[in-house]
Design a protein around this nucleic acid. Structure first.
Length: 109
DNA sequence: CTCTTGACTGAGG
DNA sequence: GCCTCAGCCAAGA
């Protein structure tokens, strides 16, 4: 694995930790913020190794606000419960009022 | 080395 | 708004 790749993974974790309570963002938004627009999938892949770390992976969803990565959590509805406990309404794997809870890393600068 | 598999996205119909 | 297709790129078989 190349050093740049490791650096990329680390950055993904750092950005994920910056997500405010009760807010969410998308894989693409993080990728764009890191200058890797074409590597949104790698962001998701990186989250795959976020277990055991202080990374709120449940706050990262795809661009539609869909909880596509819920299967990577322990239970089938753990991710949804975590989001709801933060005041985010989730119905059938779909975040409600997605535009309102969406947090763009680029805007946080 | 080649082929498959995705926690993705944007464009086109 | 939904569906399909095509880029994308790292990891594993």
């Amino acid at each position: 694995m190349k050093p740049e790749t490791l650096n990329f993974f680390v950055k993904v974790y750092e950005v994920a930790r910056l997500i405010p309570y009760g807010r969410v963002t998308s894989y693409g938004a993080i990728a764009r913020y890191l200058g890797a627009v074409r590597s949104a999938r790698m962001v998701g892949y990186a989250m795959n190794g976020s277990g055991g770390k202080d990374v709120p992976a449940h706050r990262v969803v795809n661009r539609k606000g869909l909880l596509t990565g819920k299967h990577h959590f322990d239970g089938t509805n753990l991710m949804q419960q975590l989001l709801e406990s933060e005041g985010i309404e989730v119905i059938d794997n779909q975040i409600q009022n997605f535009e309102k809870v969406f947090w763009d890393p680029s805007e946080a600068l």
